[in-house]
């Protein structure tokens, strides 16, 4: 019998702590498959952020550093400058990157750091129990926007790829979604591109993945996938925002 679906070598096989239906697991698998396909397990160094994925290092079988909240791009900069021939990637949530770490991500891109950034946008602070994130949609109810996010006092959702695409030092910027198989396939191609760019020394690559948090959205996993398609994609259009250096 020929197995058709195996665990990627770059995953440890430790059972994750993620809630059932959470797309963090899908994103992990995609990254691990690509590390395997590109045969870079022995030279990959991951940087885990603060958020539900703080323990990502338990699941990826590669060297890892755990960074302070928002600082993964700075930590990755330190690693990459010491080991320019290794493949350094960060794995960050939307609170981590778009809020507390907004400066670090913009400047890592501006410096043209040759790193790969995986950005999990689930429109919420998952780990701390469902507070409003900078990416929370208008009208979306969270524990700190109980009446729904009101742009008059709480502003608008922040679109990181659009923002980073305006940075000359950024090489590859894309947004994909994990809400169905076809989109997961596209996401995998974008992530692969983002790693290949680094291997070719092309500079800063970032892929945003529209993701679910069924627990804090208070939805079933299936409903959560539908919610991504119906409510997130209109606000967060998919596609490549930049491929190539400079303006």
């Amino acid at each position: 019998m020929k197995p058709v679906y195996l665990r990627p070598k770059s995953l440890t096989g430790v059972v994750t702590h993620y809630c059932p239906g959470c797309t963090h697991g899908i994103a992990h698998r995609l990254v691990a498959e690509i590390i395997d396909e590109l045969r870079i397990q022995g030279k990959a160094i991951g940087v885990a952020s603060v958020g539900c994925s703080v323990f990502a290092y338990n699941y990826f079988d590669v060297d890892f550093q755990q960074a302070a909240h928002g600082r993964a791009p700075a930590v990755a900069t330190g690693i990459k400058r010491v080991h320019p021939d290794r493949i350094v990637f960060t794995y960050q949530g939307d609170g981590d990157m778009a809020s507390i770490g907004a400066a670090e991500i913009v400047h890592a891109a501006a410096r043209r750091e040759n790193i790969t950034v995986i950005f999990i946008n689930n429109a919420i602070y998952g780990m701390t129990g469902g507070q409003m994130a900078p990416t929370t949609l208008e009208g979306q109810v969270t524990t700190t926007s109980p009446m729904g996010r009101d742009h008059k006092s709480q502003g608008y959702p922040l679109r990181m790829p659009e923002l980073l695409a305006a940075v000359d030092g950024a090489y590859y910027i894309a947004r994909c979604s994990l809400h169905n198989a076809a989109h997961i396939g596209r996401a995998k191609r974008a992530i692969k591109q983002a790693f290949q760019n680094q291997m070719e020394g092309k500079g800063f690559s970032m892929v945003e993945l529209l993701s679910t948090c069924p627990t804090n959205w208070r939805m079933s996993p299936v409903k959560a996938m539908e919610w991504v398609e119906k409510h997130m994609i209109p606000v967060y259009p998919l596609g490549e925002f930049k491929s190539g250096e400079g303006e």
Binding site: Q65, V75, G78
Partner: peptide, 20 residues
């Protein structure tokens, strides 16, 4: 590397120190 802030500097130090 001239970092964007001292917050970034010290975290770059963390990364580089962790890298040996």
């Amino acid at each position: 590397v001239q970092a964007e802030s001292e917050v970034a500097s010290i975290n770059m130090v963390y990364g580089a120190a962790g890298a040996g």
